[in-house]
Design a protein around this nucleic acid. Sequence first.
RNA 1: GCUACUGUGGCUCAGCUGGUAGAGCAGCGCAUUCGUAAUGCGCAGGCCGUCGGUUCAAAUCCGACCAGUAGCUCCA
Length: 648
Amino acid sequence: MIKVTLKDGSVKEFESGITAMEVAKNLGMGLFKVACACRINGEVKDLRTVINDDCELEILTFDDDEGKNAFRHTASHILAQAVKRLYPKAKLAIGPSIENGFYYDFDVDVAFTPDVLEKIEAEMRKIVKEKLVLERFELDADEAIDKMEELGEDYKIELINEHSGKGEKISFYRQGEFIELCAGPHIPDTSRVKAFKLTSSTGAYWRGDSKNKMLQRIYATAFTKKDAMEEYLAAVEEAKKRDHNIIGRQLKYFMTSDIVGQGLPHLMPKGAKLFQILNRYVQDIEENEYGFEFTRTPLMAKSDLYKISGHWEHYKDGMFVMGDENSGEDVFALRPMTCPFQYQIYLNEMRSYRDLPIRYAETSTLFRNESSGEMHGLIRVRQFTISEGHIIITPEQLKDEFRKCIDLIQRMMTDTGLIGDISYRLSKWDPEDTEKYIGIPEMWNESEGLMREILDDIELDYEEAVGEAAFYGPKLDFQIKNVHGKEDTLCTVQIDLMLARQFEMTYIAPDGTKQYPYIIHRTSIGCYERTMALLIEKYAGAMPLWLSPEQIRILPISDKHLEMAKQIKTKLSQKGLRVKIDERSEKIGYKIREAQLEKLPYMLLVGDKEIAQSTVSVRKRGEGDIGAMGVDDFCELAKKQDDEKVIF
RNA sequence: GCUACUGUGGCUCAGCUGGUAGAGCAGCGCAUUCGUAAUGCGCAGGCCGUCGGUUCAAAUCCGACCAGUAGCUCCA
């Protein structure tokens, strides 16, 4: 007999050799029916795992992340089985569970068009009905390869070959006629996959490498209950309605033009106003509260500059280069970043340790020749403007300055309301990738170590990511997801121990020696276009008052009330509020409807009643008619909400 | 750059298997001067993304290019 300690701390005795699945059944059929996997002594295992010794056991269900993974991974096997039944020549690659679902990659001749997906779904439903039991078995590596060769599964052979060195057995799962190389865990049988949907198909490179063949990927999701899935799918559809690329155009924040080119958005008056609001806000805070000085440097430079910085070697493909290198004349390139330009200002005179830190900021327009498939609305573009800055410091000043950079960003994310959507990423180099990174391992270890120290010090919750660093140093990236769930960097703070050397930037230390400074590269509010996109998505176009291009619209009931409307507008405008009057001879209902569709924070109705009482009737976004108010009272209220950056 | 899909008046969309375009909203004109999400009537507006091919005939079929969407790769 063995002792099994359960999640609630209770201990039960079982015959040695019992499986986790049988334990679950013993605990109750209800639990057994929803069991997806288990955790034995802290390790996630398959329910078929045989238990021979005393242990701690937790039965995992769809409500646990690991249970969800097992469930959806089984659904991906069902998908693969269906594809194999319909297209026997299809070769299987991989099919993991992912956040909110799973995918499977196939090498197959047919295009997975929507009607093909429907056929596959129908076949999957059959497999679910067949209630196929999943069985696990193991083979030696060479047997496993023989088996996969027999089935023509070239990609699986590649995977087995990589594993075979470890001398471990290779595990497989079988369901009906279908056999799949897989580590598991899996749920007991296919009948439990009650609700699933193939959501899209797309291309994806084998092993994520663009040098490899492009396979066809099917994205899908699966749930234990149909209504849970419907709810999820509806939420996805709902999120798409916030897409800045749609409502940003509808609400006339920006547009694009075929004739101008890809990735070159035009900010329309509303977009330009939002840009201006953010830019003034950023510049005021940086200058007045964080000690930055503003520079204004050229938008292009000779190739020589980029050769020193390393950009020419590492990122030439990403730059817009003008002129012919072989002509003997100077070749220029539009700047893809601001660093070397601000460094020139530093280099313009002899610097002392007493001068440091030097904090340069710039509202900096950059140009990057992104590949054609990369552009997306305002999030990924070829010309954009960034709240750029470089802080040149002595090593002792690093921690303090770095923390202040984080503080500044967090302040701006708080004011804009984005703070809750941010996650933090420590982006490290990849020692294997000698192409991408400059410098020696010692310097990378030092800079990454310093950053980790700072982050741990302020107890920031962050993830580490290999191969995401800048070519000159590690980054703290402020990550955010768009409505499609795709993550992008919104803001960044980077430690650079390399470029000062490349540019021969020095300062005179107290002992009279020349030293290389450290450099912090940072954004504050990030790239304006991208930040605006995320704001539009967060608020579905209904901008917080302080960010609204038009904060208040005055709606005269009829033409005879226009004069009073103008007087009120003057009063509000003098307080710095952004006000317009709807002067058209339209019915009041019509004017309200339009202002409502434009998602304006406030509407003020002015008619006979209001004029008689010196009031305005206020309509507030989200609340509707909130009644009449004295003009001065409203003015004070709006001004206060604007100053305090109240979000409603 | 790669895979798939898409491209019809300012916007949203219709136009079956090829016979050369239609609606609603928006716009303009006239009337209406109006009380919390659409007043009525009328008018105008389209080289059907671009170029080329097939055909007696192309918005419809084919090709290339341009642009858009999602994903992959990339993202200094």
